[in-house]
Simulated scan of single mutants.
Amino acid sequence: MPKVFDWNGFRFHFYSDEGDPREPVHIHVRKGADNAKFWLHPQATLAYNRGFPAHVLSQLIGVIEQRSDVIERAWNDHFD
């Protein structure tokens, strides 16, 4: 489970086994027992949420949008 970065106690990561065929670029976010998954394209959107309140999801989308280049680079480096 490669970690891309941490932000304010949130762990941004993806899984090495992302399906067959592999799913499009996305990021998982975890803090404590709460977790969510976000697609990066065509824009950062929520795939699923387990526990985060709406205002936190909005913050996370903002962070993902700001760091989408870092996320995508880590994804490509890992899977290519």
Rank of each mutant, 00 (worst) to 15 (best):
1 M>I: 09
2 P>H: 03
4 V>P: 09
4 V>F: 12
5 F>I: 10
5 F>N: 09
5 F>A: 07
6 D>C: 06
6 D>T: 06
7 W>A: 11
8 N>G: 13
10 F>P: 06
10 F>R: 02
11 R>N: 11
11 R>A: 05
12 F>D: 02
12 F>S: 08
12 F>P: 05
14 F>E: 01
15 Y>S: 05
15 Y>Q: 06
15 Y>L: 09
15 Y>R: 13
16 S>M: 08
16 S>A: 11
16 S>I: 11
17 D>M: 14
17 D>K: 12
18 E>K: 00
18 E>N: 02
18 E>A: 02
18 E>S: 12
19 G>N: 13
20 D>V: 04
21 P>D: 04
21 P>C: 06
21 P>W: 04
22 R>T: 02
22 R>G: 12
22 R>A: 06
23 E>M: 08
24 P>C: 07
24 P>L: 15
25 V>M: 15
25 V>A: 15
25 V>Y: 08
27 I>Q: 04
28 H>S: 03
28 H>L: 07
28 H>Y: 07
30 R>A: 06
30 R>G: 02
30 R>E: 14
30 R>Y: 07
31 K>I: 03
31 K>P: 04
32 G>V: 08
32 G>S: 07
32 G>W: 14
33 A>K: 12
33 A>Q: 13
34 D>E: 15
35 N>T: 05
36 A>S: 03
36 A>M: 01
36 A>P: 04
37 K>M: 02
38 F>W: 01
39 W>K: 01
39 W>C: 01
39 W>E: 00
40 L>K: 13
41 H>N: 08
41 H>K: 12
41 H>F: 09
42 P>V: 02
42 P>Y: 04
43 Q>T: 08
43 Q>E: 15
44 A>V: 14
44 A>N: 03
45 T>N: 00
45 T>G: 02
45 T>S: 00
45 T>F: 00
46 L>A: 09
47 A>Y: 09
48 Y>S: 11
48 Y>P: 04
48 Y>L: 04
49 N>F: 02
50 R>E: 12
51 G>H: 13
51 G>V: 07
51 G>F: 10
51 G>E: 10
52 F>A: 08
52 F>C: 04
52 F>W: 00
54 A>L: 15
54 A>D: 08
54 A>W: 14
55 H>V: 08
55 H>E: 13
55 H>M: 06
56 V>H: 01
57 L>D: 06
58 S>K: 01
58 S>R: 00
59 Q>W: 01
59 Q>Y: 03
60 L>V: 01
60 L>A: 03
60 L>S: 03
61 I>L: 09
62 G>N: 09
62 G>C: 11
62 G>M: 07
63 V>C: 11
63 V>S: 12
63 V>T: 07
64 I>F: 14
65 E>Y: 05
65 E>D: 08
66 Q>K: 05
66 Q>N: 10
67 R>G: 05
68 S>Q: 13
68 S>H: 06
68 S>F: 11
68 S>I: 13
69 D>A: 15
69 D>W: 09
70 V>I: 15
70 V>D: 06
70 V>K: 10
72 E>R: 09
72 E>F: 03
72 E>I: 12
73 R>I: 10
73 R>Y: 13
74 A>Q: 06
74 A>F: 11
75 W>V: 03
75 W>C: 04
75 W>S: 14
76 N>F: 11
76 N>Q: 14
76 N>H: 04
77 D>M: 11
77 D>N: 15
77 D>F: 07
77 D>I: 10
77 D>Q: 15
79 F>R: 07
79 F>Y: 03
80 D>I: 12
80 D>G: 08
80 D>F: 04
